[in-house]
Design a protein around this nucleic acid. Structure first.
Lengths: 309, 309
DNA sequence: AGAGAACCTGACAGGTTCCGTCAGGTTTCG
DNA sequence: CGAAACCTGACGGAACCTGTCAGGTTCTCT
């Protein structure tokens, strides 16, 4: 397997796909794709496969390379560089191929472009990347596979505590990941975003006999609505809208700006304490509801003031 | 080149290194490393090379795969999976190799481990990754190489504006990246973190005759001290230390915890307004100096209080 | 200017590994 | 039951990768 096909596969595996589709996309046989997938598995990538109708392959998010950091052109190059002309013709991507060829040539040889080395002066280059909140599914999967009990540091109503659980596995629902486990014999869903660390224990997990993951998950979510999330209504001043969108991301939904320049919005919070994220905006962000959210912001501000007196 | 060696190289290129070091680390010849690096360049990765004394190779941050997202075990696997026993012996990593071997076997074959597919129930899997603030050097480099004028959306003292510049190139200094450019014939440093978008123009860049990047950069930083960064001293309560480290990242340097459980630290800010980041911690974080930072935090809290009255 | 330390390239021979094809298999759902 | 999916082993051929060797350019320091 070549690196470019490796990257192509990693990209494609971000969503559900099939071996046949991967083979068509990469221009190799299905047997080769199988081998590549096996290689990825052996290398520790959490590749998920499902046989039969509606089967296919995908990969757990979080543990994979964050290919979203690739610029679009880099993605294109990586996906196409390794294909020869005949393969490209078969794939019907000849037009794109010509463009990629020109671009690759541009990046590599002196064809009127300035060399990278002539555009950079440097002395040191630290590397940093923000750590994601919570635990990723792929990080947990290793210990889950061993079938042992887990001790998880879990947040509930603002306080973090250690809990010992017998895990069935993971559930992905509504865009979130949960650990499905028994705690003292009672089934529980633990939101992975609320786990900040965990430890595997030496003892095997103790599951109720004859009970499987899918059943427990169904049981726990059967009376489940999409409610439970706290929606904080707010207004943001126009000049802070972009910053807010950048910092709060998909949790923030903004409406059309009003004549006075402010934009109404909704911030989805897990708990009331999440309103703390709005404090850096000071008086540029106004919580309009619910009342307890307004009160909490005020209380926090009062806390700060008292603290510095 | 194999994917695992590709990943190894990408990891190693995050900091300055040499071809010889890469060859030793990966167990291949220097010629092979050269070829690999050429492959990476052709694939669009911004590989930087420098000949002669203090030369070496590295890669611009931001455009590469964000390998920091790999879990440590995954990094280890990827780096070692492709080596045979003799290469490992040469590298003196035999003990580690045995552990990786066991782990790889555990991940791939049914040796008492539960299969991944038996541990996951899922219905949809959104992919999300936080967007980095500012612009990455690698994203800019493509347009810089074309030697054209750029229109950049740049933040200065809180407001974003479009500015048209003639770029010389990039400067990395003090852990930050700057665009070195003339604006209306006057040289400027534009912090990449303050650029949120840019557009290349069609017109070629207009540089002062005989003036090169290194000279402009030196000229602009000659009277430059490491000052200009504001170091806010603070104390953080023990139970918020991990969260603070997670949220504030490398900007926060913490010392040894004191007997009362709090940890002293320094938060590096570009401007005083950056203390806003501390507001979500309310009274769990205490600014101890400089005085203007304390005053600013108090003023912001007062602002919030007044706003909700 | 010279020496040494760095990256850089082309060419060649050998061998390793990858690939596609073929044959078989298991699993899942309607 | 049939179709759609993933799954594995084996084989022969060829593609490509690799290390070695020979040469080169660039950069810094003395």
């Amino acid at each position: 397997m070549t690196p470019d096909r490796c990257f192509s596969l990693l990209l494609a595996l971000r969503s559900d796909t099939t071996v046949a589709a991967l083979a068509a996309a990469t221009g190799v046989s299905e047997r080769t794709v199988m081998r590549d997938l096996r290689w990825l598995q052996d290398a520790g990538f959490p590749v998920l496969a499902r046989r039969g109708h509606y089967g296919g392959v995908s990969m757990l998010p979080g543990g994979a390379l964050d290919t979203s950091r690739l610029t679009p052109p880099e993605r294109e190059h990586l996906a196409l560089t390794g294909l020869d002309d005949e393969q490209r013709r078969r794939l019907g991507v000849e037009a794109v191929s010509d463009r990629a060829r020109r671009k690759v040539a541009g990046a590599g040889s002196g064809d009127g472009l300035i060399a990278v080395g002539d555009l950079v002066v440097s002395d040191n280059r630290p590397w940093f990347g923000p750590e994601p909140a919570g635990v990723s599914p792929a990080a947990l999967i290793g210990d889950l596979r061993r079938g042992v009990r887990l001790k998880v540091h879990y947040e509930r109503t603002g306080s973090m505590r250690w809990r010992t659980v017998d895990p069935y596995g993971l559930l992905a629902k509504g865009g979130r990941w949960y650990l499905v486990a028994d705690e003292a014999g009672a089934p529980r869903l633990l939101n992975l975003l609320k786990i900040d660390r965990w430890e595997p224990l030496r003892t095997p997990r103790r599951l109720r006999p004859g009970v499987r993951l899918a059943e427990v998950a169904a049981e726990l979510t059967s009376g489940w609505e999409t409610g439970g999330d706290l929606e904080v209504r707010l207004r943001i001043q126009g000049h802070q809208v972009e910053r807010a969108q950048r910092l709060l991301g998909s949790r923030l939904t903004l409406g059309e700006p009003e004549p006075d320049g402010t934009a109404p919005g909704v911030l989805r919070c897990r708990v009331l304490e999440d309103v703390r994220q709005l404090l850096p905006f000071a008086d540029s962000a106004t919580v309009t509801g619910p009342p307890e959210a307004r009160e909490r912001v005020k209380a926090l501000a009062q806390q700060i003031l008292d603290h510095y007196r």
